[in-house]
Simulated scan of single mutants.
Amino acid sequence: MKLFDILDFTITDAIDILLFAALLYYLYRLIRGTVAINIFMGIVMIYLIWKVTEALQMQLLSSILGQFIGVGVFALIVVFQQEIRRFLLTIGSTNITARNKLHRVFHFFKQKEILLNIESLVSVCEKLGSSNTGALIVLEHNMPLDFVTATGDKMNLEFSEPIIESIFYKNSPLHDGAIVIRGNTIVATRVILPVAAEDTLPKRYGLRHRAAVSITEKTDATALVVSEETGHISYFKNGNFVKHNNNDELIQLIKNDF
Rank of each mutant, 00 (worst) to 15 (best):
M1T: 09
L3Q: 11
L7N: 13
T10Y: 04
I11Y: 12
D16V: 13
L18V: 13
L19E: 11
L19R: 06
F20D: 12
A21C: 11
A22L: 15
L23I: 12
Y26W: 08
L27N: 12
I39L: 11
I39V: 09
F40A: 15
G42H: 05
V44H: 07
Y47A: 14
W50R: 07
K51W: 10
V52I: 10
V52A: 11
L56C: 06
L56Q: 10
L56Y: 07
L60A: 07
L60Q: 08
V71I: 14
G72E: 01
A75N: 09
L76R: 10
F80L: 06
Q82H: 14
E83D: 08
R85C: 13
L88S: 11
L88N: 13
T97H: 12
T97I: 14
A98S: 15
K101F: 06
L102G: 13
V105N: 05
H107T: 09
F109P: 00
Q111C: 09
E113M: 12
I114M: 11
N117K: 04
I118R: 03
S120W: 05
V122D: 02
S123W: 03
S123Y: 07
K127F: 00
G134P: 01
A135D: 02
A135R: 03
V138I: 09
A150D: 11
E158R: 15
F159N: 00
E165Y: 03
E165C: 01
N171K: 13
P173D: 03
P173V: 06
G177K: 05
A178D: 04
G183V: 03
T189C: 06
V191W: 04
T200W: 10
G206C: 07
R208D: 14
H209V: 10
V213Q: 05
I215D: 02
E217G: 08
L224K: 01
L224Q: 05
S227V: 05
E229M: 12
H232L: 12
Y235E: 04
N245P: 08
N245C: 09
D248K: 14
L250P: 02
I254L: 01
N256D: 09
N256H: 06
